[in-house]
Computed example of a mutant assay.
Amino acid sequence: MKIAGFTIIKNAIHNDYPIVEAIQSILPVVDEMVVLIGDCIDETRQLIESMGDSKIKIFDSVWDPNLRSGGVVLAVETDKAFRLVSPDADWAFYIQGDEVVPESSHAAIKEACRKYKDDKRVEGLLFKYLHFYGTYDYVGDSRKWYDHEVRIIRNDKKITAYRDAQGFRVGTRKLNVKPANAWVYHYGWVKSPAQMKRKMKDAAKYWLSDDKDLNEFMSSTDVFDFNEFDSLKKFTGQHPAVMRSRVEKQTWKVNLDISKKRFSLKNKFLYFIEKLTGVRLFTFKNYKKI
């Protein structure tokens, strides 16, 4: 059985993406690691080269500046990276530049890949998610944050990234998936208020196709207000080993009152039901469990 990893990245240093940690977190699971690097303004390529791991295969790409709506350029680049995965791989493990897989999940991932390798009905493996916010001490616990997503797909090039590459489809059809019984920790919202806003402004040109909307956002304050949340809770677990140095180096403080909940009446009711039963009702699922 062969598992290939793949990812895309652009301006990792400028935007403080934990791309090295993301790659390191799945290297023990994969046999090769495709890294597709966009046209950067920083030394992202040198950063990846400095990792010095023989599994890593670096490729270069130029992001289409005309793709300015809904983050579709991320899907285009993800599809490019997937096509670079070796044809003899059974599975392809996608990791985004701000996602990290805890080492405690490695055994379960390998077991799921072995278990479903020859079951061609299974097109992907579903991961559980934790989304960190503001600092490494808080996680989102509302319906705003997706709680599952597909991160391992069969090496079938009919599968493509969907919308902004949050998940995958075959055409418009959702993938048939089984649980990986594993976690992904998402750190995309953990930055200083200034760094967070800088990343958002850098990404805005791939999301806002209207020049007026883009210019308005670019002229907004240079500091992000982390108090714009609906519901958070304290993180009481351990961060992945590859993240611990980064966690220890955190220099900013964000004071968040997590006792406050900001819900509509409908979402307040659904939040209560989820916490009571563990079931998330009426949520969008970008996959089909079989």
Rank of each mutant, 00 (worst) to 15 (best):
D164S: 06
D164L: 15
A165R: 02
A165D: 00
Q166H: 12
Q166M: 11
G167N: 12
F168H: 03
R169E: 00
R169I: 01
R169F: 14
V170D: 04
V170K: 12
G171T: 13
G171W: 04
R173H: 02
R173F: 00
R173N: 04
L175H: 04
L175P: 07
L175K: 12
N176S: 03
V177T: 00
V177R: 05
K178I: 06
P179M: 09
P179R: 13
A180Q: 14
A180P: 09
A182V: 05
V184I: 15
V184H: 05
V184E: 15
Y185L: 06
Y185F: 08
Y185P: 07
H186Q: 08
Y187L: 12
Y187F: 15
G188K: 01
G188W: 04
G188P: 07
W189A: 10
W189G: 01
W189S: 11
W189D: 12
V190N: 13
K191F: 01
S192I: 14
S192Q: 10
A194V: 00
Q195I: 05
Q195Y: 09
M196Q: 09
M196A: 08
K197V: 14
K197M: 15
K197R: 05
R198I: 03
R198Q: 09
R198F: 02
K199Q: 12
M200W: 03
M200F: 07
K201Y: 00
A203F: 11
A204P: 14
K205L: 06
K205W: 04
K205F: 03
K205R: 15
Y206A: 12
Y206Q: 00
W207H: 14
W207P: 10
W207N: 13
L208R: 11
L208N: 10
S209W: 13
S209E: 11
S209K: 14
D211Y: 02
K212E: 06
K212D: 05
D213I: 12
D213L: 12
L214Y: 03
L214T: 10
N215G: 01
E216D: 15
E216Q: 11
E216S: 10
E216C: 08
F217K: 14
F217M: 06
F217P: 05
M218I: 05
M218F: 14
S219P: 01
S220K: 12
T221F: 03
T221E: 12
D222S: 10
D222E: 00
D222A: 00
D222K: 05
D222P: 01
V223W: 01
V223R: 03
D225R: 09
F226D: 03
F226M: 15
F226N: 04
N227C: 03
E228H: 13
E228K: 15
F229H: 08
F229Y: 14
D230R: 15
D230V: 08
S231V: 13
L232D: 08
L232F: 15
K234Q: 11
F235E: 13
F235V: 09
F235S: 09
T236H: 07
T236Y: 00
T236D: 14
G237V: 10
Q238C: 11
Q238E: 15
Q238M: 09
